[in-house]
Design a protein around this nucleic acid. Structure first.
Ligand SMILES: [Mn+2]
Ligand SMILES: [Mn+2]
Ligand SMILES: [Mn+2]
Ligand SMILES: [Mn+2]
Lengths: 142, 142
DNA sequence: TCTTAAGTTTAGCCTTGGCTAAATAAATTT
DNA sequence: AAATTTATTTAGCCAAGGCTAAACTTAAGA
């Protein structure tokens, strides 16, 4: 009697989780960036978003369409992009996590400039529990 | 006179780097896993690879095809998969980095089980410099 | 106002990495 | 040896996230 193949093995769980986290990564970065632009410039325009994300503007347009579809952002054609309540909430959460990751890296001896770069990818894989541990560690160091 | 838009801004560099790192992530995980299976069982079969990666077997077949195309693995039809010199080298590198990431997380207070999960995604964004910092930190703690 | 410049979207392409269903090959049982 | 089971590959689908080129709208300048 073979094992049920529909249940993923214990082994595979971490890969499944990593893929789930990655699936949110792009949206998280866009939402955080749109929040930054609105804070800095009062509005988030497609061209500015694209430039800061390092992509061509049609790529940004498509990402924005997805944010709208997911209820994280709103915009009218040829106008700037704004965050919904939910988008704002995500932006705050993501920004705080981003900062904690950078600070943790710096605290364990990573050069700041390197920390800034690596954190951009790392952050999306930092779970609630890991974030809590980071913040506790940082609080104990200050 | 507008700025040259072909040069990516300083701001965008970290996103570009994160995307580059992500582009290698799947191959790194497969190569590490194939190495594990060969060490454990003497060979890496498609079904075992798929099961441990938590994907359907055609997905594993496709990934293996890519590894072969990139010169990291070899296999004959309907036979097991093996690593090239280059694949072996990557497997060692990736496995060592994976371990360091887990140990660093544990060292700063992340529960081991959580560390195992989060490390699977984090590892791919840990640069040489950050890895060096992690190892130095861990050496000073032991 | 009219023309031009700048910004945005649309259209259409590509690769990766998922999936299911079907075909094919290998291994095992009878 | 034949039949059956198991494993692998192939075919064909999908969504995300890149890109360039072209169309369209808005903003700015003459
Ligand atoms: Mn990021
Ligand atoms: Mn970020
Ligand atoms: Mn991994
Ligand atoms: Mn790994």
């Amino acid at each position: 009697m073979p094992e049920n193949p529909s249940r993923p093995s214990k082994q595979s769980l971490r890969f499944v989780r990593a893929r789930e986290a990655q699936a949110c990564a792009v949206m998280e970065d866009y939402v955080e960036m749109i929040g930054d632009l609105i804070a800095e410039l009062g509005e988030a325009r497609t061209a500015d978003i694209a430039e800061r994300m390092g992509v061509a503007h049609p790529t940004a347009t498509k990402a924005i369409a997805r944010l709208k579809r997911e209820g994280l952002a709103v915009s009218r054609p040829y106008r700037g992009v704004f965050l919904t309540e939910e988008g704002e909430a995500m932006a705050h959460r993501v920004r705080a996590r981003h900062r904690s990751v950078v600070e943790l890296l710096v605290a364990v001896g990573v050069p700041r400039e390197t920390a800034e770069i690596d954190a951009e990818g790392i952050e999306h894989h930092v779970s609630q529990q890991t974030l809590a541990a980071f913040d506790k560690y940082l609080a104990g160091k200050e």
